[in-house]
Design a protein around this nucleic acid. Structure first.
Lengths: 262, 262
DNA sequence: AGTGTAGGTCTACAGTGAAGACCTACACTA
DNA sequence: TAGTGTAGGTCTTCACTGTAGACCTACACT
């Protein structure tokens, strides 16, 4: 980009790029939430006239799509080792981490693609899909099966993330479970179970919860599908029981939650 | 409400109610999408000064929450017959139908609760939760287990709905699969699998796809949990194999999709 | 008869996304 | 080297948004 360099050295006010725009847009959203992002504020943050941004995105909507894409691009789907179940687990947790790194973007991530039909979506959005399909077919599944698995998997994943974010209370310092969740506001007759579950709800840990969901999902997959011969991925340990629980402390050393009955 | 009646008979311009407001708001959203709803337009649709609405909702956000609540209230969670798996399936499909009846509300449904912590949410939003917990404990699960199942179940459900809505192409009359999905825009080297799956993608049917996901999920649940003794629900047919596929035509007689390998 | 108040209206304000005209500095061609 | 097309940037402007605040008004109740 010597053109860019040259432009900067002379009078021009330092060229701007789509990437920079999207990056600062992401910053603003991370800081102030989605409603905190307006074209004018973005322009201000960039030291540019707001209208300048329209050279890089036709819409504000397109801009938001861009932000979603940027975030989704950070999801690495090529996991080198482990069998397909491990790989799915790893992907799931990276996705979770991503969501936690940019919680305000999650609604975007989950909702925005609604607007455009699959094949018209930006390539970045489709890459994870292709990647997971590759992963699964490499493991021995047929492409159509891989597609179905992908759908169930990512559906569950999206759902879990949304659920988990809903569980995040805004006042996490509040100690007493009942008070903290404000469950005492609920009438006891109508919500006996929910109220009785206050301690469990209070001790919610997203990572282990995700692992449990994955246990269920993967167990389901293994009962319903002929075990694929995973020759591509180095050491395939198929002897592993389908019911293996995520070992102890969860994925990346998060504190372990109060263990429930199963 | 004789006060209301009286007021109407005399000079007052026919009392308005929260329900009517939310109902017409829902109408507008169904017709014009979420961005189509503004306070002013809502006021106009109701024949009222826009500012009048603020007597019934403190915010526009609260109003949207109200709409989400109204829709969610239509979800019936008390299914009289069948064992717990059947009941879950039925609930899943009613939810799906609901989502299809109000596709524009789905982002709201899935996203809005993020704002408020669980226990501060309006009761209507929590009722399905309590209902499903009841269902599962009635079937013999412990309340904490029921909670976990609920989370996986609803997570998956939300995810599926989002996925499915994403799959809805705006140009459904287009016949040729590849063209219809515009997959030919994708570079072949990068997206071989995705492109090869064009026909499968074209033949997408949400209902059977949902059933397949449910198959997986329920199979997973059944392998991971001690079979509960469902004494409460009339005839418990536990002999049913875990791998039962939804029989043929899907839930409510939607056309069956091209059957894949499993 | 008098008053408090729920419900309704009007005006106004700060802020929004964006269309359209314009300007300007560079790249490139003749 | 002069000339020009154009990508990039700026300014003005418009229609529209959510909602604060003052006000008004008709009813319910004391």
């Amino acid at each position: 980009m010597d053109a860019n360099e040259a432009a900067r050295q002379r009078g021009r006010p330092e060229r701007i790029s789509r990437e920079v725009i999207l990056a600062t847009a992401l910053e603003i959203i991370d800081r102030d939430g989605i409603d905190g992002l307006s074209i004018r504020r973005l322009g201000q943050a960039l030291g540019r006239d707001p209208m300048a941004l329209y050279r890089y995105a036709p819409n504000k909507a397109a801009l938001l799509d861009g932000v979603a894409e940027v975030v989704l691009d950070q999801l690495n789907v090529d996991i080198p080792n482990g069998d397909w179940t491990d790989q799915l687990r790893t992907i799931a947790h990276s996705f979770r981490n991503l969501a936690h790194a940019h919680p305000h973007v999650v609604p975007l991530l989950v909702t925005r693609p609604l607007a455009t039909p699959l094949a018209l979506r930006p390539l970045g959005t489709l890459r994870p899909l292709e990647g997971i399909l590759a992963l699964l077919t490499r493991a021995g599944f047929s492409p159509p099966d891989a597609l179905h698995i992908y759908r169930s998997f990512l559906g569950f994943l999206n759902g879990h993330i949304l659920n988990e974010l809903q569980e995040l209370v805004d006042n996490p310092d509040e100690s007493d479970a009942l008070l903290r969740l404000g469950l005492h506001r609920l009438p006891i007759r109508e919500f006996p179970l929910l109220r009785s579950l206050a301690p469990v709800l209070a001790g919610y840990d997203g990572a282990t919860e995700l692992d449990r969901g994955l246990d269920i999902l993967i167990a389901g997959l293994q009962t319903r599908l002929p075990h694929p011969t995973s020759q591509a991925s180095g050491h395939s340990h198929r002897g592993r029981p389908a019911v293996c629980v995520s070992d102890g402390g969860g994925f990346m050393g998060w504190g372990s939650a109060p263990r429930s009955t199963w």
